[in-house]
Structure formats: structure tokens, C-alpha cells
């Protein structure tokens, strides 16, 4: 069956990256494994939608995986309850990420993040890569939830201004 062949190829080329995404966000191998299954089912169901996106195919696939993994932690994690446990495991050494970021330095987003204060840029990166919620970020930075949201929105407005400059 031709569609199976295409799907197998797609899986071979992208499953490691998408598993990396699920693992990083969910921080739990068994759950990431389950999420990855669901992600590929979603990709199969929604593949036609990538044509109306401006994302490259691999970025579109990563977005599907990332959004699905974040949906899962939002649904599972009641922030006030297990936030300490979450923070304990959510912060492995930054080594490989820093290296990977250095590789894409010419991208505009990196340049624009540099224009933000260091801790605010770190909050944006952390939220993106680990799928942290406002509640978790507020806990981490020791500020009230609404302050955190105001903070981050200001950062996003500045980013938008820079990205569209």
C-alpha cells in the first residue's frame, strides 16, 4: 500500500525529533511514548492542514507534537498540587540545548530574545521548550500569577515589535 510506505518514511525521518519534543515537555518516558503514538495518529488525520500553514513540514510536525504534549501536561498537571515535583525534574543541564541554539543563531527570534532582559528571555525559552504554565513560571520566579502574565505579555509584545521590525 502506497500510503503505508509514505507514512513509514515519514515516521523514520521524524520520530526521533518528535520523541525528543514529547520527552522534553512531558519528562516521563512512558507518557512521552503514549503521546508520540497519539501525535502520529494526529499527523495522519490532520496532514492536509499543513498546506495552509506557513511552517516548513518539519516545523509543522514539531508544532503538532509540541502542542499535543503541552495539552497533555495541562490536562494532567494541577499546578498548585505537584509544582515542586515538576520543577525538580524539569531542569536538566542546559548543555545540548545551548549548543543547538548556537547553531541557529542567525534566526531572527534569537536576536530578538537578546533584546529582552536575561531572565525574561529565559522565561520565554523555558516556557517554549518545557511547556511551562504561567502558574509554574510564577512559582519559579516568586511572583504572583498576574504579575507573571503581565511580565510575559510585555516580553511577547517586545518580541513581536522586534520580529516584525
Amino acid at each position: 500500500m502506497k500510503d503505508r510506505v509514505a507514512f513509514d518514511l515519514l515516521y523514520r525521518q521524524t520520530s526521533a525529533k518528535l520523541f525528543g519534543v514529547c520527552l522534553r515537555v512531558l519528562n516521563d518516558r512512558a507518557e512521552a511514548e503514549e503521546a508520540l503514538q497519539e501525535v502520529f495518529v494526529k499527523i495522519w488525520m490532520k496532514a492536509d492542514r499543513f498546506a495552509v500553514s506557513d511552517l516548513s513540514p518539519i516545523s509543522w510536525l514539531v508544532a503538532v507534537a509540541r502542542n499535543h504534549a503541552i495539552d497533555r501536561i495541562r490536562a494532567r498537571r494541577q499546578p498548585a498540587v505537584d509544582i515542586d515535583a515538576a520543577l525538580d525534574v524539569a531542569d536538566p543541564a542546559p548543555g545540548p540545548e545551548a549548543a543547538a541554539v548556537a547553531g541557529g543563531e542567525n534566526e531572527r527570534i534569537h536576536h530578538c530574545l537578546e533584546e529582552l532582559e536575561k531572565d525574561r528571555a529565559a522565561a520565554v525559552r523555558g516556557a517554549y521548550l518545557k511547556g511551562e504554565s504561567y502558574a509554574e513560571l510564577a512559582e519559579r520566579y516568586g511572583v504572583p500569577l498576574n504579575t507573571m502574565r503581565t511580565w510575559l505579555r510585555r516580553s511577547l509584545l517586545k518580541l513581536r515589535e522586534c520580529l516584525e521590525r
Binding site: 520520530s15 526521533a16 525529533k17 518528535l18 520523541f19 525528543g20 519534543v21 520527552l23 522534553r24 518516558r29 511514548e33 508520540l36 503514538q37 502520529f40 500553514s53 506557513d54 511552517l55 516548513s56 516545523s59 514539531v62 508544532a63 509540541r66 545540548p96 540545548e97 543547538a100 541554539v101 547553531g103 541557529g104 534566526e107 531572527r108 527570534i109 534569537h110 525559552r125 517554549y128 521548550l129 518580541l159 513581536r160 520580529l163
Partner: peptide
């Protein structure tokens, strides 16, 4: 998504379990 997608380069590739 387009603006922020370069950040995703930081995700490492991790071989998926064979059962998936």
C-alpha cells in the same frame, strides 16, 4: 508558530521506543 519555531532546534533527537 513560524516566529518561534527556530527555538525548537534545541530539542534533541531521541530514538523512539521500538513499540511505538
Amino acid at each position: 508558530e513560524v516566529h518561534l519555531s527556530p527555538l525548537a532546534e534545541a530539542y534533541p533527537e531521541v530514538e523512539a521506543p521500538a513499540s511505538v
